[in-house]
Nucleic acid binder design. Structure first.
Ligand SMILES: [Mn+2]
Ligand SMILES: [Mn+2]
Ligand SMILES: [Mn+2]
Ligand SMILES: [Mn+2]
Lengths: 221, 221
DNA sequence: GTAATAAGTTAGATGATTCTAACAAAATCA
DNA sequence: TGATTTTGTTAGAATCATCTAACTTATTAC
């Protein structure tokens, strides 16, 4: 009914529209590394299938049906990442590319079993919420997270999630023993480049660039 | 490099050629439920890639390269089936369709991890040998297996594998508590239809049709 | 050993997914 | 406001994977 390719477009659009509610053909093109004319015709196709609202020269939006379908693919992606980390012993920096493929497996029983073996987790290994079986996402807490880069000197926060994590960032965090759940205290902020010196666990003083702090989502303690 | 579609052709050809060493376009067409002209042009394509020996009107053969590649896909299929049964709690009748999809995942680390978690199994849940990382298959024992239907009254044998298992057969075996490893004694054979009455474990007298006995591979005790 | 049947091949078409080139509309700059 | 740049669209082509129709070669039946 819906191809692997179409699923990837839907998922990318879901991710892009999660904040602003809409996205441009250009953004989607860059996200997927697929040329604009290709994206354009795919959007028309998904509009035919009732998954996307497409009007010439207007921003793209997912329909309710499209949102739900996308969320169910994201669900499979995040459940898989959690399974790979919790049950197979992979590091959080290794799982995204595998999940990118396994998310397309057609077998409700397979993901049902994963969910069950994991004890119905609510978040993935990077702290992102796992949509439920109806495609509903628990945003309540998640939207309250703030960036570490928006914290002030003296703040103490809990490290809750990594946003748009790349392998490199996750490996960097590994090298500094900075894991989800860590209590981070902002010791000082360098005015010149906004880099932070923070302490957490056994680390007394670690310097984190603004580029890093911008990706770390935290919750005030 | 090689598509999911091409992988499925290779695998089907590997299975068909395992006995006779060669197969016809017609057989492959039936196996895959794809029309002959389609199969014909795919064989030319795989020949271009050095995976199949194709000559007009001659039987199809895999090249050494094709054999190895096919065996490595079969390896992924069988490791997956074993993982699903041993680590996720699926029944042996549920895993083939899921493995049919997961066998195409491109991630050496993923299958490496499965193999490790399973303790480097030599056979899959249906008793078929799992090719090693070089595509070599341990046929030594496997080729010595005989069909239960070829046994005589009074023979006692061990149930080692199911050949070309369908869901239905596996569910039937479940319903009779007939599992791999069972010691089966042939009590009598009905001359009219060659159905067997056998005993094993706590089952004193079970009737098995010739069609069933033909699929059960056993080893004399 | 011909006639009928089965198997294999060629040709041409279709839908999916991608591209480049060219053009049109919208947004930004001056 | 008019010129320039960016974004979006249309047109046309390529590759992959599939099909049907028509033809050819091989096998089987009488
Ligand atoms: Mn991911
Ligand atoms: Mn994907
Ligand atoms: Mn199987
Ligand atoms: Mn397959």
């Amino acid at each position: 009914m819906i191809s692997q390719t179409e699923e990837n477009y839907l998922k990318a659009l879901w991710n892009l529209t999660s904040t602003k509610g809409e996205a441009s053909v250009n953004e989607l093109s860059k996200q997927l590394d697929i040329k604009m004319p290709t994206v354009n015709s795919m959007m028309k196709r998904l509009a035919e299938k009732g998954l996307v609202n497409y009007e010439s020269y207007k921003p793209l939006k997912l329909t309710d049906k499209g949102k739900k379908l996308a969320a169910l693919i994201i669900r499979k992606h995040r459940l898989t990442e959690m399974y790979l980390v919790e049950k197979m012993g992979f590091g959080w920096e290794e799982v995204h590319d595998i999940a990118e493929q396994i998310e397309h497996i057609q077998s409700p029983a397979f993901f049902e079993k994963m969910d069950e073996l994991l004890g119905y987790p609510k978040i993935d290994p990077h702290g992102s919420p796992i949509p439920d079986k109806n495609g509903k996402v628990e945003t309540e807490q998640y939207i309250r997270y703030i960036k570490l880069s928006d914290c002030k000197e003296g703040d103490t926060v809990t490290f809750m999630a990594v946003s748009h994590s790349s392998d490199e960032l996750l490996k960097f965090l590994n090298s500094r023993d900075l894991a989800l759940g860590s209590k981070i205290k902002v010791k000082s902020i360098e005015p010149f480049d906004e880099s932070m010196t923070v302490s957490y666990a056994s680390r007394k003083a670690e310097m984190l660039s603004n580029k890093v702090c911008d990706k770390l989502l935290v919750r005030p303690v």
